[in-house]
């Protein structure tokens, strides 16, 4: 029955070769540069072994960046899921089908915007003097509100934009997931006079546990791509309070000193950490 078929090899090989080359060459090269002391102004470097890695661990800005990145991951993933589940349930409970479709389309808009656009839209909205989001505060108190220059609020304000993009988008997915659930358990619970919130906490959310974990996984990966927002909104400031790992690697490699080898060693550590963490989580999710 199964005759020899050239299709899988012909269709798969070119794509996989290109992906492999494009993925492995930079990875290997990153390790190679990280063992040198190359700088942008000096194209040839000497091998210094693992000196860059040792330096990293006594670099307080690097330690700070780890903390900021971890906080960023936890806050954005957590808030996105809370917003997504909350709004998803509201869409399912309170909106008629037509309304659902319109809202779903509107909720998709923020995530489709380029992050640079989203960052600017909100940076201007939070402008202490002319911003539309800070205007009510200014009108009531007479004081300008500068959230992005305040070390205590800057990271949360940037995170808000991330949750604005992803929380609304994921709420549409949660709605679609709820729509795929069989109606019988809900009806049975209603007959037993279960309250609406009990139906969700006891039936719907446990039934959707697996897809919700997958969503959290996707968001964790996407939260690593926070650079655009932070670069446009705060550039890592005030001080280094919003400096994530990619922001710090970027400023080491480009802005301040052009120390590409040092930046590269940071990139290698990030690569190892994310690969291990996500491979582990992925296998667990499967």
């Amino acid at each position: 029955m199964k005759q020899k078929n050239s299709l899988p090899a012909v269709f798969l090989t070119p794509a996989m070769m290109i992906l492999a080359v494009l993925a492995f060459v930079p990875t290997v090269y990153a390790i190679y540069i990280s063992l040198q002391n190359r700088e942008l102004s000096r194209p040839v470097g000497d091998f210094v072994g693992i000196a860059n890695y040792i330096d990293l661990f006594s670099d307080r800005r690097f330690i700070n960046a780890i903390g900021v990145s971890l906080t960023w991951e936890a806050v954005t993933v957590g808030m996105t899921l809370i917003v997504a589940v909350g709004l998803g349930i509201l869409l399912f409970e309170c909106a008629a089908p037509r309304m659902r479709n319109i809202l779903a389309l509107l909720f998709l808009m923020p995530v489709i915007l380029p992050r640079v656009s989203a960052a600017f839209v909100w940076k201007f909205a939070f402008h202490p003097l002319y911003g539309i989001a800070t205007y009510p505060y200014k009108a009531i108190t007479g004081q300008p509100l500068d959230l992005l220059s305040n070390p205590a609020t800057a990271l949360a304000t940037v995170a808000l934009v991330d949750v604005w993009q992803w929380g609304l988008f994921f709420s549409v997915i949660v709605l679609k997931l709820l729509e795929t659930l069989p109606p019988q358990p809900f009806e049975a619970a209603r007959l037993d006079h279960a309250r609406t919130w009990e139906i969700y906490t006891h039936i719907a959310i446990p039934m959707l546990k697996a897809p919700l974990i997958s969503l959290a996984f996707v968001k964790m990966i996407e939260s690593l791509r926070a650079f655009d927002l932070i670069y446009v909104m705060t550039r890592g400031g005030p001080g280094i309070t919003t400096e994530t790992l990619d922001m710090y690697a970027f400023s080491q490699g480009f802005i301040e000193s052009g120390r590409i080898s040092y930046a590269s060693s940071m990139a290698v550590l990030m690569m190892i950490a994310t690969s291990i963490a996500f491979t582990f989580i992925w296998k667990r999710v499967q």
């Binding site: 090269y29 650079f227 490699g253 590409i260 990139a267 990030m270």
Partner: peptide
Amino acid sequence: FLPPVAIAIPL
């Protein structure tokens, strides 16, 4: 999974 910065620097 690869952080974009980790691809961009070597590239």
